Measured scan of single mutants.
Amino acid sequence: VFVDDHLLEKVLELNAKGEKRLIKTWSRRSTIVPEMVGHTIAVYNGKQHVPVYITENMVGHKLGEFAP
């Protein structure tokens, strides 16, 4: 499973602090992992960042699938 390192670091850091804030990313190719559930990730679609709230059903899919 591929997840960009910088994105995973941000998610794990927020989980350690117990925070839930918006994470901006250009990494549409990253796979959604269970650690991301409950976070809102702003995924770049080529024009703007689209906020995507991550749920359990999204695990295993790519971030780009949810930012048309």
Score class of each variant (00 low, 15 high):
residue 1 V to P: 15
residue 1 V to Y: 06
residue 1 V to S: 15
residue 2 F to C: 15
residue 2 F to P: 05
residue 2 F to W: 14
residue 2 F to R: 05
residue 3 V to H: 04
residue 3 V to C: 08
residue 3 V to D: 06
residue 3 V to Q: 04
residue 4 D to P: 03
residue 4 D to K: 01
residue 4 D to W: 02
residue 4 D to T: 02
residue 5 D to S: 15
residue 5 D to I: 15
residue 5 D to N: 15
residue 5 D to P: 15
residue 5 D to K: 15
residue 5 D to E: 15
residue 5 D to Y: 15
residue 5 D to L: 15
residue 6 H to A: 15
residue 6 H to E: 15
residue 7 L to N: 01
residue 7 L to G: 00
residue 7 L to V: 03
residue 7 L to K: 00
residue 8 L to R: 05
residue 8 L to Y: 11
residue 8 L to N: 02
residue 9 E to G: 12
residue 9 E to W: 11
residue 9 E to T: 14
residue 9 E to M: 15
residue 9 E to Y: 11
residue 10 K to Q: 15
residue 10 K to P: 01
residue 10 K to D: 07
residue 10 K to N: 10
residue 10 K to C: 15
residue 10 K to A: 15
residue 11 V to K: 01
residue 11 V to T: 02
residue 11 V to D: 01
residue 11 V to G: 00
residue 11 V to I: 13
residue 12 L to M: 11
residue 12 L to W: 07
residue 13 E to I: 07
residue 13 E to V: 06
residue 13 E to C: 14
residue 14 L to M: 12
residue 14 L to C: 07
residue 14 L to F: 06
residue 14 L to P: 01
residue 14 L to K: 01
residue 14 L to E: 02
residue 15 N to Q: 03
residue 15 N to M: 03
residue 15 N to D: 03
residue 15 N to K: 03
residue 16 A to E: 10
residue 16 A to C: 11
residue 16 A to F: 08
residue 16 A to T: 09
residue 16 A to N: 10
residue 16 A to Y: 08
residue 17 K to H: 08
residue 17 K to T: 11
residue 17 K to A: 10
residue 17 K to P: 01
residue 18 G to I: 02
residue 18 G to S: 07
residue 19 E to G: 04
residue 19 E to N: 06
residue 20 K to F: 11
residue 20 K to E: 03
residue 20 K to Q: 06
residue 20 K to P: 02
residue 20 K to T: 07
residue 21 R to F: 10
residue 21 R to Q: 12
residue 21 R to T: 10
residue 21 R to P: 06
residue 21 R to H: 12
residue 21 R to I: 11
residue 21 R to S: 12
residue 21 R to Y: 10
residue 21 R to C: 15
residue 22 L to I: 14
residue 22 L to H: 05
residue 22 L to C: 13
residue 22 L to N: 04
residue 22 L to M: 12
residue 22 L to E: 08
residue 22 L to F: 05
residue 23 I to L: 09
residue 23 I to S: 01
residue 23 I to K: 02
residue 23 I to W: 01
residue 23 I to R: 01
residue 24 K to F: 15
residue 24 K to R: 13
residue 25 T to Y: 02
residue 25 T to A: 02
residue 25 T to R: 02
residue 25 T to W: 03
residue 26 W to F: 14
residue 26 W to Q: 07
residue 26 W to L: 08
residue 26 W to H: 14
residue 27 S to P: 01
residue 27 S to Y: 06
residue 27 S to K: 04
residue 27 S to F: 06
residue 27 S to A: 07
residue 27 S to E: 05
residue 28 R to V: 05
residue 28 R to G: 04
residue 28 R to F: 05
residue 28 R to S: 05
residue 29 R to S: 07
residue 29 R to D: 08
residue 29 R to L: 12
residue 29 R to I: 15
residue 29 R to F: 14
residue 29 R to Y: 13
residue 30 S to A: 03
residue 30 S to F: 03
residue 30 S to L: 02
residue 30 S to V: 02
residue 31 T to C: 15
residue 31 T to A: 12
residue 32 I to A: 04
residue 33 V to N: 04
residue 33 V to P: 03
residue 34 P to N: 12
residue 34 P to T: 12
residue 34 P to S: 10
residue 34 P to W: 13
residue 34 P to F: 13
residue 35 E to D: 09
residue 35 E to Y: 07
residue 35 E to Q: 13
residue 35 E to L: 14
residue 35 E to K: 05
residue 35 E to H: 08
residue 36 M to F: 12
residue 36 M to A: 02
residue 36 M to W: 01
residue 37 V to P: 01
residue 38 G to W: 08
residue 39 H to L: 04
residue 39 H to T: 01
residue 39 H to W: 06
residue 39 H to E: 00
residue 40 T to I: 09
residue 40 T to N: 09
residue 40 T to L: 11
residue 40 T to E: 06
residue 42 A to P: 00
residue 42 A to G: 14
residue 42 A to K: 04
residue 42 A to N: 04
residue 43 V to E: 00
residue 43 V to Q: 01
residue 43 V to Y: 02
residue 44 Y to V: 03
residue 44 Y to I: 05
residue 44 Y to T: 05
residue 44 Y to F: 12
residue 44 Y to G: 03
residue 45 N to G: 05
residue 45 N to R: 09
residue 46 G to C: 15
residue 46 G to T: 07
residue 46 G to W: 14
residue 47 K to T: 11
residue 47 K to Q: 09
residue 47 K to P: 05
residue 47 K to E: 08
residue 48 Q to K: 12
residue 49 H to V: 03
residue 49 H to N: 05
residue 49 H to K: 03
residue 49 H to D: 04
residue 49 H to R: 03
residue 49 H to M: 09
residue 49 H to A: 04
residue 49 H to C: 06
residue 49 H to F: 13
residue 50 V to L: 12
residue 50 V to F: 11
residue 50 V to A: 09
residue 50 V to D: 10
residue 51 P to F: 05
residue 51 P to H: 05
residue 51 P to T: 11
residue 52 V to D: 00
residue 52 V to H: 03
residue 53 Y to K: 12
residue 53 Y to R: 11
residue 54 I to R: 00
residue 55 T to K: 12
residue 55 T to V: 12
residue 55 T to P: 01
residue 55 T to C: 14
residue 55 T to I: 13
residue 55 T to S: 13
residue 55 T to Y: 13
residue 56 E to L: 13
residue 56 E to R: 14
residue 56 E to G: 14
residue 56 E to S: 14
residue 57 N to R: 11
residue 57 N to L: 14
residue 57 N to P: 12
residue 58 M to A: 08
residue 58 M to Q: 08
residue 58 M to D: 07
residue 59 V to S: 07
residue 59 V to A: 07
residue 59 V to H: 03
residue 60 G to Y: 15
residue 60 G to A: 11
residue 61 H to D: 08
residue 61 H to Q: 12
residue 61 H to W: 12
residue 61 H to K: 12
residue 61 H to A: 11
residue 61 H to V: 09
residue 62 K to N: 08
residue 62 K to A: 09
residue 62 K to H: 11
residue 62 K to W: 07
residue 63 L to S: 01
residue 63 L to G: 00
residue 63 L to N: 02
residue 63 L to C: 02
residue 64 G to H: 08
residue 64 G to S: 07
residue 64 G to K: 09
residue 64 G to C: 13
residue 64 G to I: 06
residue 64 G to P: 00
residue 65 E to D: 06
residue 65 E to T: 11
residue 66 F to G: 02
residue 66 F to R: 02
residue 67 A to E: 04
residue 67 A to C: 07
residue 67 A to P: 04
residue 68 P to M: 11
residue 68 P to S: 08
residue 68 P to Q: 08
residue 68 P to C: 13
